[in-house]
Structure formats: structure tokens, C-alpha cells
Design a protein around this nucleic acid. Structure first.
Lengths: 193, 193
DNA sequence: AGCTCCAGCCATACGCTGTATGGATACGCT
DNA sequence: AGCGTATCCATACAGCGTATGGCTGGAGCT
């Protein structure tokens, strides 16, 4: 079952994912090529294809690995405002841990299943916030878009230059409060009963 | 000055931009290649480089052409809410006119100068909305991120399947109202004087 | 008229990409 | 002993952006 490889140990999927993530962190997803990855692993490029279907599957795997790190806030008794803050914070932390990978995620939203995990928690919170039932789904999509839009822009800028973490955090605070106040007002949902 | 070309007329930058936009509308920016574009124009690939520095410059040109279509709402006396709606609407219309090109714009924000046009109008409106001076800049960036995030998601989904334009417009209405209510509340800006 | 200049166009080539195809190797199992 | 199979590798193909350099033929000048 084992073939004498030019390196010691045979390849493993985890090792592939880990090195791919390293390369992406260093140079972005567009700097990742199967050949460079193979070189990094001291392996023939084609060997990768025995562990991974193709490059997009590889990238999906790496993204899934990162997403699985997301720690969703539990449904404790805290007010919905705090729970929403916690959820946004968890998402933002994830993005900040691997900004370049997250750029890829933003550009390929299909790798993250919004129906799962995150989406459910978000809908629960919106329900608690008094959003009318028929608008919970749409509002969930909207807030997801707002947060991803903000975090995308933030991580992008952050890669370029460092404008002072204080300003950034203040911006983040303003953004969150805008959303909370908008939700709390209830003015967004009263077109017809 | 003119060389017998394999087609009749010599190439022009406008013609290049127009056909590039057509190809992008049809298959997205990633389906645009210099060779395909040249074939479409019945010209040798290298001929393009006498009118365009390279591919990214070409894409920037096409984007700029689209962006120049943006009709910024004038500073009439209307309340800031309506002006903000108008601005968002203008932006959204632009994206909907060329969704696939806009996907590229979202993924390469550097092609659009936020300091210019759009940004100035947005800051003016926020000022009228009573946003404290020191937070106008940050809030402008935030709203820009919110709107682009929403429009990006919307145009993306819209490319996949057609979930009914009514739902989409209702979502858009909710999103706008969320922002307006959040701004109107003033709760986002009272950390310290 | 003859000259140069050069804008516009094209042919060739290089290094890069993802991956289809098929062959080599070496272990576990019967 | 021999087979199945998991893993790895060599070669090759089509496509990409573009560097380099050569051709052509009108414009402008002497």
C-alpha cells in the first residue's frame, strides 16, 4: 500500500491542506498553484490528485477547515443585541485569522453553506429581536451581506497598510451599532401586515 | 500610418473596450482572454497591446467605462433619506446593468476611486443626516461596504437562479430601511464627545 | 523624388497554469 | 506465488499573458 516516496512519509490530506493554507496565507489564493504546492511538499504535482479531486476541491477543503474553527455563540439567556455582537465577532475573528483565505471565501461564497450553522443562529437571534417571521430569512441574508461586505473591505485594507487598529475597531463598533439600532427600531418591516 | 489589416478598419480603443465588455457580460471576467478577445476582433492577439498596456489595464478601462455611467444624484433640497436612497439606487442599477463585470469590480476595488464622485456625495449626505464630523469618513466607508456587500450577493444569486424579482426588491427595501433607521437613531456615534 | 520615421500589426517563443493519461512501485491479502 | 490496490511519477496537451523583434506602408520633410 505504501510506495517509496522521494520524501519520508507518504502524503496525507491534512498535510496538503495545512501547507496549502500556509501558501495562501503567504501569497493569497491566486498564488497557490498545484505545482508550487507539490514542490513545497517535495512531491510530484500529479501525486496531489490522489488525495484531492482538483484544485477547486482542494480550496474548498481548506476553506471548510477554516470555517470549522468558527465557534458559534450558544443560546444563553443574554439579550439578542449581545448575541448578535458575539456572532459578528466570531465571524470577524475568523476572517482576521486568515485574511487572504477569506478573500477567496468572499469571492466564492458557494464553499460556505449558509443554511448550516451560522445561518440558523442568525435566524434565531433575529427572531428574538422581534423581526416578523416572514422577514427573518431575508433579513438574515441582508445582515450576512452587510457583515461580509464590511469584513471583506476591512481585511483588504488591512493587507495594504496598517492605518492604526484603533480607527478600525471604532469603525467596527459604529457598523455594529448601526445594525443594532436599525433592527431595534423596527421601522424596516412595516410595509404590509 | 495605417497598415493593411486583415480586417477592414484598424483597431480602436473604444472597439476593444466594447467587445471586451460584451465578452465579460457573456461569460464573466475570468472567461475573457486576450486571445479570445483578439479572435472576436479578427486580429492578432499581440495587436491589442498597441492600444492597451496589459490585461489589467484593459479591465480597468472597461470598469471605468461602466462606472462613468453612474449618474450621481444632485444636491437638491430633498431630505437626506431620499438622497441616500437615490444614491444607493444609482449604484445598484449600475451593478444590475453588467452583473458579471460588477463581480470583477467587487473583487478588485482598486479600479474605483472611492475618494471621487460617489464618496463625496455620500459624505455630504451623511453630514446632512447629522452624523458627527469625526465619524463621517468611517461611516461612509461602512455604508459603502454594506451596499456593495448587499449588491454583490444580490447580483451573484441573480446570476444563478431567478427567485422572483418581488422578493429581491422587498429585500432591498428592508436593507435600505435598516440603514436609514440605524442612521436616524443616532445611537451609533455616542461613545465619547 | 527620395528619404526617414514610426504607428500599427503580426509571428514566434517562453514560462506558467490545471490536469488527462498511463506506467511504475511496493505493500497486504489470499 | 501471485494478485489487487494504493500511491506516486513522467509525459503531454491546451490554454494563458506577454517579451521580443520584424514587417509594412503612409506621413512629413528635404
Amino acid at each position: 500500500m505504501a510506495v517509496r516516496t522521494r520524501r519520508g512519509e507518504p502524503l496525507s490530506l491534512d498535510e496538503i491542506h495545512a501547507t496549502a493554507l500556509r501558501l495562501i496565507d503567504a501569497g493569497g489564493a491566486e498564488a497557490l498553484s498545484m505545482r508550487k504546492l507539490a514542490a513545497e511538499l517535495d512531491v510530484n504535482p500529479m501525486s496531489l490528485y490522489h488525495h484531492v479531486e482538483n484544485k477547486t476541491a482542494l480550496l474548498a477543503g481548506v476553506c471548510g477547515l477554516a470555517i470549522s474553527q468558527l465557534r458559534l455563540p450558544p443560546d444563553d439567556g443574554r439579550p439578542w443585541q449581545e448575541q448578535l455582537r458575539a456572532l459578528a465577532h466570531a465571524y470577524r475573528s475568523l476572517a482576521q485569522a486568515h485574511p487572504r483565505l477569506w478573500a477567496y471565501v468572499h469571492e466564492h461564497p458557494e464553499v460556505v453553506d449558509r443554511k448550516e450553522g451560522m445561518g440558523a443562529v442568525l435566524r434565531r437571534i433575529l427572531h428574538a429581536a422581534g423581526v416578523p417571521e416572514r422577514d427573518v430569512e431575508a433579513t438574515s441574508e441582508i445582515l450576512y451581506a452587510f457583515v461580509t461586505g464590511f469584513v471583506y473591505a476591512e481585511t483588504r485594507d488591512h493587507l495594504g497598510e496598517h492605518p492604526g487598529a484603533e480607527d478600525v475597531d471604532r469603525s467596527y463598533e459604529i457598523a455594529i451599532r448601526l445594525i443594532l439600532a436599525g433592527l431595534a427600531s423596527g421601522e424596516a418591516f412595516d410595509t404590509q401586515p
